[in-house]
């Protein structure tokens, strides 16, 4: 078992430290900058990278990431480019967990088994497929297990108890759970993070898996708030917005670095929860 994800969570737990997961839409604005921006995130304190593979119809994403996806696709972005960027990152960082984040069609069209193998060869540790609910993608699960990749399950405010129970049965090698803070798309400023933190704590206790909270975390205060109930937080839209708004490559790097550092500092002021060790 490669275990980068498990080790990352264990290290954070031992250091009583919250994990910071950062999302980038790879290819926005282009391949070279995405690679540089990913490294900037790591330099500024990101623990896990979510490499977003753009999709033409990102129905789970709000307007900011949807626009980034359009820009990326226009610049030649897609699964092939995302895996190329992963390969380059893996060459630089042997221990950094890389999560491939995307929609099912690009994987399916390549051939699910082939896509999973390619992800593994690119140094990806886990797959997060937003439109493939846990328990509905047998082919992907089988391929991921055969290739020692995690398939990260989502839990939402609307998830049933039965869903959480399924995670208990089948989620032992999920790596971690991604708790979606709000019924909505990414970048929702109204996400009820206090409630999300409470629910994430429950899910963490129920499943014994580490939990990160994502959706609607756009700055240090919200990151701190959400992190209270979880092992870490995911920040996506806020980073993508910095990339969209900056007017030069240097400004993009500087602004993303500044945001990630600020999030890191905020999280480091928050101690790890005293919860049972995830298995």
């Amino acid at each position: 078992m490669n275990g980068r994800i498990e080790r990352a969570f264990a290290r954070a737990r031992d250091a009583k430290r919250k994990l910071l997961v950062t999302y980038l839409c790879i290819g926005d604005p282009n391949e070279a900058e995405s690679l540089a921006l990913a490294k900037a995130c790591v330099d500024a304190g990101a623990d896990i990278l979510e490499l977003g593979s753009p999709f033409s119809d990102p129905t789970a994403d709000g307007p900011v990431i949807a626009r980034a996806s359009e820009r990326s696709i226009a610049a030649g972005g897609g699964l092939t480019m995302t895996l190329r960027v992963a390969t380059a990152l893996r060459a630089s960082y042997t221990e950094l967990p890389l999560v491939l984040f995307g929609y099912y069609n690009p994987l399916y069209v390549r051939g699910t088994g082939k896509a999973v193998l390619a992800a593994r060869e690119a140094g990806i540790d886990a797959l997060l497929v937003v439109d493939l609910p846990f328990g509905h993608g047998d082919e992907l699960m089988t391929a991921a297990r055969a290739n020692d990749l995690r398939v990260v399950p989502l839990v939402a405010p609307t998830s049933t108890d039965a869903h959480v129970a399924r995670l208990l049965q089948h989620g032992a090698d999920a790596g971690f759970v991604y708790y979606v803070s709000v019924a909505g798309v990414t970048g929702n400023a109204a996400a009820p993070l206090l409630e999300a933190a409470a629910r994430a704590t429950q899910v963490r206790a129920q499943t014994g898996l580490p939990v990160v909270i994502g959706f609607g975390i756009d700055g240090p205060e919200k990151a701190k708030l959400a992190a209270r109930g979880a092992d870490g937080v995911v920040v996506g839209t806020a980073i993508v917005r910095e990339i969209e708004n900056a007017t030069s490559p240097d400004a993009r790097i500087a602004n993303v670095k500044a945001l990630v550092s600020c999030l890191r500092t905020a999280l480091d002021g928050e101690s790890a929860p005293e919860a049972p060790h995830p298995r």
Binding site: T59, Y104, P133, H136, L154, V155, T158, T160, A183
Partner: peptide, 14 residues
């Protein structure tokens, strides 16, 4: 066929 949507919508489809 099937049901390829985000987890948030699963309960509504149920």
């Amino acid at each position: 066929g099937g049901r390829f949507v985000s987890e948030t919508l699963m309960f509504a489809l149920d």
